[in-house]
Amino acid sequence: MTVTPATANDVDAIALRNLSKRFHEGRLPSFGHTDEGVLAVDDLSLDVREGQIFGLIGPNGAGKTTVLRMLLGLVHPTQGASYIFGEKMHPGSKVLRRVGTLVETPGFVPHMSGMENLKSFWLAGGDSWKDANIGPALEIAGLGTAIDRKVRTYSKGMQQRLALAQVLLNRPQLLVLDEPTVGLDPGEMRDVRDLIRRLGQEGSTIFLSSHILAELELVCTHAAVMAKGKLVASGTVEELIGGRQSVYVEVDDVERALRVLQATPGVIRAEPEPPGVAVALDGIARNEIVAALVHAGVGVETVSTRRRLEDAFLGMMEGEDA
């Protein structure tokens, strides 16, 4: 199934409207002490349009998971509401039939096999097993004969792959994934990234959270940054990064390179990191600084791009703390 760009941007797959969540400690209020609780999510509004691969970024404790859980009806918002495909969400909403979900870690019944777990999950939703997208899901899991072993014997990576198979069982139009690559090795991480990209190309909307920014940068079209329960920024990944980027230049003379770079317009910052220099750029191309260095007689060994989203993100976080 493919969605043409014209229709893709007309419909909100997800709309969060003024979502707030205050967690109480469960203590009884006593004289001089009221349980104000903790404001985990503070008046958050967000739109994810159909066809987007939307990343939710934020440090641990920013409220990402709480947002995802409110979206799915697991956590009751203190204020506000969330909508999926225009339908207001409540626990067990019918629209969940069109959503595939991975919330934090996988959760399976340890004394049943992988296959029995998938079947049990599916049938508990009131659907017929013959409607399940079992073939492609098992292909993604790639568990082979281990699918008939008890989940108790699975490694963390195997459980994560089974969870991804579970996500795909209902051919979801929207995937909500919380930290989908946690616990995977680098090869498995790449497989998951490829899977997310492929599903995005096939027209699924994907809303995922992660604190591994390089990973989000690789797969997402759009992103939002959260800090302390609030939305700090949102937009396309390119917009968030802006004109800024940072590069690492390996040179033969660090001192000289620093002097040259600091005198070059468009260079925000140049810091020595032997055997090279880390350079933050705004509005200047990489080849221009290489040219400037070579022109000044500095030998350039390699030039590599740093993780740009991470820089943008850290820049925003610094602004938050100030």
């Binding site: 697991l74 019918k94 959760g107 019944v109 939703g125």
Partner: peptide, 14 residues
Amino acid sequence: WGSLRYLLVRPVSR
């Protein structure tokens, strides 16, 4: 087990 949340993200009432 952590499976409760997966039972509750199905289109089924609590």
